[in-house]
Amino acid sequence: MNLFRQIASNLVKGPVSDDAAGGGAGDGSDTVSDATLVSRCQEGDYAAFDALVTKHRGRVYAMIQNMVRNEADSWDLAQEVFVKVWKALPRFEARARFSTWMYRITHNVVYDWMRKRKMETVGELDDNLLDQESIAAGALATPSRMARPDEALSQGELRTKIEAALEKLSPEHREAILLREVQGFEYKEIADVMDCSIGTVMSRLFYARKKLQSLLTKTHE
């Protein structure tokens, strides 16, 4: 472990401007610094890329982990994302925000992995079940109002229940919820990441929220 840490600490890191620090993927404040780092990367500056990786790896890893639910695979997939980012950086044009573009690559890597693992249908909630609950536009999201998550529920228990409910969503619904509610993306950014229309994003969010409420309500009943 020390050896690896030593290797890591020996990486040559170029000067990174102060504005490169902080900021999240869903936060517009990092756009300029990302643009600067990207520009340096495009000139072949690996130190700039290392800084980009350090800045974004936590969000990429969290997103992947919430999608694939496996630490080792998430680690590998996050590595794969950044290798693809590096290779595609020369073609990146600043029309989109870097973080949105990076999440798009993350999306593709995760879905490729899911296809390979034939996981698309595993854990997916059958939409017919939801039909039975008469969930339609304008209808009640939750079958019953009496079961709100208990305020006294411990954070750990709550997290477990929420994770379990997320896992029961289809990958598309889960991703839409994660991008919107956890990562704080705008509808347009979600559409760019998921390669779909804004209308589709709206629909996915609408049904994903209802499913999530329904699942968590059932859990507490």
Partner: peptide
Amino acid sequence: ELKAAIPAEVEPPYPDFFNA
């Protein structure tokens, strides 16, 4: 609750080694 339970950012295990 979702925001509190699901962090937006999680450092991968061995982050230095991740970069190396």
